[in-house]
Design a protein around this nucleic acid. Structure first.
Lengths: 223, 223
DNA sequence: AAATACTTTAATGTATACATTAATATAAAA
DNA sequence: TTTTATATTAATGTATACATTAAAGTATTT
């Protein structure tokens, strides 16, 4: 799921479709048939189906028996579930990273990511901010080293991506969030385990609550 | 991944292979080719491959480009990762269940499961104990209601199953573990959030540590 | 006998073929 | 016109066909 192994066409289809879903070029509710989509991707149905089976397992599409392929929308309930899991997982990862007392050099990916978040804020480039934020969270788990933690979180990030990008434009700019990321890194560097865990947990809880509040406020029942 | 939707043959292959892996009838290190396995299952390669792609995503098998299909072993590192994730996830679920103050009636699946664990101990039936334990953990997350939490934990349980069954025979009987489960249920019933979380977390941490100790003691480098 | 080149085998990755059947369109009946 | 029955269409689920190519086996050379 992460390695380059899988044959080229299946992999191509998987990556391209996932990218198109992330970027909203294939919007939720989109409906297609296998022959259609296979032709669009320039391949036969066989590799396409293998890719679709994976995307379905990822929770991004649904293959309805005789009705075709649907791009799944994200419901508020989905965001609630996703944030709940992330809130359970990530603070633990942060705590155990802090316990490791890594030299600052090794934390560069995190420090870089926060720098890019700050820069993006200055440039007023929300797209770039979201990318940097994504990278921060991903690098954190890469550093942590638990491959399952990383792949679970990546799955959830991918599911939530669209909704996050859209709602980012509906709230005030994420200054606070950016600052919190920096604080977390500080705590990790200083090996302050509980502080790191708590800041991160509060960050996640607040981020989740804010996001759900926005969905409710604008009556966004799906994204 | 959880619904019955997927066409019959793909689903059959998925379930049968998964079951054979769980039960160790297809042991780690087993190697097969697609034509072989397809014939054994009485179907063509097409549905078999779709099932294999899913099993690979589940982390149970590996399809090596020109070498065939391998059943993946469980390494101590895998168990470490799995328990790390479960330790992060389940105590949170328990806490939020406790916070809900459910009537005892709704917690029957959990109470039943602990009863079955006790009965299995009396009968000295470790297989039955493991089943009841599995069910307890699964029911807990069903009650919690977060579908993602459930499917993530199920994935991890499935990955760890073989190793758990094997090591269960190498340690003293799980009286303590059984008692801890009962205690957790008590706390949930009484709505004692922090107590529930802590007992469960300690349970998980101890279970994980014990398991890794057994692997180390018997120099089991893979299961 | 060891090393190299060549041949054969067979597994994968992918395309295509085909039977089944749900969904739609069309025609017949009320 | 509305309803029901029938015919048509076309998408899925699956099997089969086939080109490619890694690996195993054989022959050739040294």
């Amino acid at each position: 799921m992460m390695q380059k192994s899988r044959s080229s066409l299946v992999n191509d289809a998987y990556r391209r479709l996932k990218q198109e879903i992330r970027s909203n070029r294939l919007p939720p509710g989109f409906h297609g048939t296998e022959p259609e989509m296979a032709e669009r991707l320039g391949m036969s149905r066989t590799p396409l189906r293998e890719a679709l089976v994976l995307l379905e397992a990822d929770g991004l599409v649904e293959m309805k028996p005789r009705r075709g392929i649907y791009i799944l929308p994200i419901l508020p309930q989905d965001m609630k579930e996703i944030y709940e899991v992330l809130t359970a997982i990530e603070p633990e990862a942060v705590a155990s990273l802090a316990a490791r007392k890594l030299p600052e050099k090794e934390l560069m990916p995190l420090i870089d990511a926060t720098a890019r978040m700050e820069q993006a804020l200055e440039d007023d480039d929300l797209e770039a901010w979201a990318d940097a934020d994504d990278e921060f969270h991903k690098e954190l788990l890469v550093l942590h080293g638990n491959k399952r933690l990383l792949s679970i979180a990546s799955l959830l990030f991918d599911q939530a991506h669209r909704a996050r990008v859209i709602t980012l434009r509906m709230r005030e700019k994420p200054y606070r969030s950016t600052a919190e990321h920096k604080t977390v890194v500080e705590h990790i560097i200083k090996g302050e385990i509980e502080e790191a865990r708590n800041v991160y947990r509060e960050h996640r809880e607040r981020a989740g609550a804010e996001l759900l509040a926005i969905l409710a406020k604008y009556k966004l029942q799906q994204l």
